[in-house]
């Protein structure tokens, strides 16, 4: 066995360029996940039994089906229903829709730790429900749920590798392509693993930084 760093060195620029797509998919997915997750969470804990049940069903389904299957469904089915999105957009949407189910539960857990008295105080002051959510509940829930949300983002970086299956040129796919040309899978995939690891180390450091900021602020 000989491990060639040269192969890695020569192909690193391509891999780093591909890592930008990895980041785009995960960060874009997280943005959708956050917005959609807030709505799902609100629906889940709403008093309306219908809305709450629909949200619960959504959460259960999207958490119960492998993301790879969801991705394939999005990729192949969206054209069927007349939505002709670029592959990357479909992937970001799929990742975001799936992740929102987890984000909704993270936020729900966080909301439960906010003392009920705060809501009562706001209601007593006559603050409308929408402002209550926007100004009081959601900011706190995100702050409390921040460690879990950082985790979720790191998870998205890892699952973005699944997008390679539908042909998106992110890090895993490009690594596969390079492997096809160089026949050096060990070196290339180890390098890819290192890049993923680095991204996640940086993200979790940023997450901790944000936590400290929010705790002070």
């Amino acid at each position: 066995m000989n491990f060639s760093f040269d192969v890695i060195w020569h192909n690193l620029p391509y891999m780093l360029a591909a890592a930008r797509w990895t980041l785009l998919i995960s960060v874009g997915g997280m943005a959708i996940s956050l917005v959609w997750g807030v709505f799902l969470c609100a629906a889940r804990i709403s008093r309306g039994p219908f809305l709450s049940r629909i949200a619960a069903l959504y959460i259960s389904f999207f958490r119960g089906v492998p993301l790879l299957v969801q991705l394939l469904i999005f990729y192949y089915m969206l054209p069927h229903v007349g939505l002709d999105l670029p592959a990357v957009a479909a992937a970001i949407l799929a990742v975001g829709m799936c992740s929102a189910a987890y984000t909704a539960e993270i936020l729900r857990g966080a909301l439960q730790t906010i003392p009920r008295g705060q809501t009562e105080a706001a209601l007593a002051l006559g603050i409308p429900t929408l402002s209550l959510w926007r100004r009081i509940l959601v900011p706190q829930a995100i702050r409390i749920g921040l460690p879990s949300l950082t985790n979720e983002l790191i998870l998205l970086v890892k699952v973005s590798s699944l997008a390679s299956v539908v042909g998106i040129g992110e890090l895993t796919r490009i690594s596969q392509n390079i492997t096809g040309e160089t026949y050096r899978p060990l070196e290339i995939y180890v390098a890819a693993a290192a890049i993923y690891f680095l991204i996640n180390v940086i993200l979790s450091a940023l997450g901790r930084l944000a936590e400290n900021r929010l705790l002070v602020g």
């Binding site: 895993t172 899978p185 060990l186 995939y189 693993a193």
Partner: peptide
């Protein structure tokens, strides 16, 4: 910190390179 798919690839495709 690394995707399952990459781990799988290292073992399956990279494995033969270390026997």
């Amino acid at each position: 910190g690394t995707p399952f798919m990459i781990q799988l690839f290292i073992l399956y495709f990279g494995g033969p390179h270390f026997g």
